[in-house]
Design a binder for these strands. Structure first.
Lengths: 221, 221
DNA sequence: ATCGCTTCTTGATCTGCATCAAGGAACAGC
DNA sequence: GCTGTTCCTTGATGCAGATCAAGAAGCGAT
């Protein structure tokens, strides 16, 4: 159970809540570890927990009758998902899958609701988290509708570059298949987008990305 | 100023707040009326108000550098927008436009924040509203990514039919151009989708829609 | 290193929708 | 009713990206 408390206590959800209470809650939290591509929660199932990603990445997806599924979000360490359940609702609105493997903390929904009644600040915290998620979702909709695949990829790469740097090298945090899903693309389309960005100074070798000129890349958005 | 208090007091945002306080707030609220396609708020501008649609419809949209814009939501009477500002943030994340004309109520953000500190239940209410918006946005993303134009239109029509009815006639609540935007389509694509749904028993004359068999239409989703 | 598996890339094809352009229907004002 | 305007539809074309199929590259295990 690596580094349990340090990350846990910094959770946005518990800001302003009595330290002792948080520690109690942390003690009550369950932890689970998942291999790559394992299902963490199933869309439509009765919801009992709010999750927090401790390690690795978690893909949230919705699926249609035909079985195809679309990712709606990729959660990073520190992210919360299922927090919308705090305000009611009894079922998960999406499935959650571990990306390349993930460790998550589970908080009993009933515990959290009790705690939230006791510490109203938790509702404020919940709003703050949901604000982030909502703005992200709206950006996603607008991005899908306004930008081409290449533009969305360029945008993603720029978002991973420090604002001030002129050229950057970094590793993708997860498999390209996952990134493609996050951007609403088939894996092939992501490859082609990378290829299309070569003239913009982007070089991709495995999971390593070299951005020759952030400014140039920014123009490709 | 038609029917000011009745709708206002039922606002999700003020559930559980002292009746007298709500009435004070209602008195302090400004009202504005807009002609079709007028701008109500501008993306990126400093935010000072949370809005509530009293009448008509309001389109929320984001735009890209090139000037093209995409609708991310259409708000109906009773809907709140800009509520995410309660938890911080200082600028509007989207533009808002009146659809076929709209009347909105404006609540000063600073007033609301003060009130929310006094009545923590408002944060819970805010969460409830944002939950609705967030789930809607996620449905939208998944819908865009998984369904064709025809399926999305079929889906919209079904959502406007009472669950139990077998055949239904109703009027579209706004111009088709607006509906197309809401569904992420060009107006032409909406027309073609309607045409494609004729075999599913859908007939469209002007703003009037006849659904011959809701069950049949449901299969087209 | 070599093997074997997974992940990624590239090419070919096809579909869905945007876009452009023009004709037709609805509707408000007179 | 007519007339002008707005809104919608239909047709033709083009492009972006999905999908299918096969080959290449990366990577962990031995």
């Amino acid at each position: 159970m690596l580094a349990k408390n340090p990350i846990l206590l910094r959770s946005d959800l518990f800001d302003g809540v009595n330290q002792v209470t948080v520690e109690e809650l942390a003690a009550a939290a369950q932890f689970q570890t998942f291999a790559p591509d394992e299902r963490i929660v199933a869309e439509g199932q009765p919801a009992a927990f709010v999750y927090r990603v401790m390690n690795g990445f978690v893909r949230l997806s919705k699926s249609e009758s035909g079985g195809r599924e679309a990712d709606i979000c990729v959660c990073e360490p520190g992210d919360t998902f299922g927090e919308y359940l705090l305000s009611g609702g009894g079922a998960y609105a999406y499935s959650a899958w571990s990306a390349d493997g993930a460790e998550v903390a589970l908080f009993e929904l009933s515990d959290l609701r009790t705690l939230a009644d006791q510490y109203p600040v938790m509702h404020r915290n919940g709003m703050r988290i949901m604000t982030r998620h909502l703005l992200g979702a709206m950006d996603c909709i607008a991005g899908d509708r306004l930008h081409t695949a290449t533009q969305r990829v360029a945008n993603y790469l720029v978002s991973r570059c420090p604002a001030s740097a002129s050229h950057v090298t970094f590793r993708l945090p997860y498999r390209k298949r996952i990134l493609a899903g996050k951007l609403g693309l088939a894996p092939e389309a992501l490859s082609r987008a990378f290829a299309a960005l070569v003239p913009a100074g982007v070089e991709v070798r495995g999971r390593t990305v070299l951005v020759g000129s952030v400014d140039l890349l920014r123009k490709a958005c």
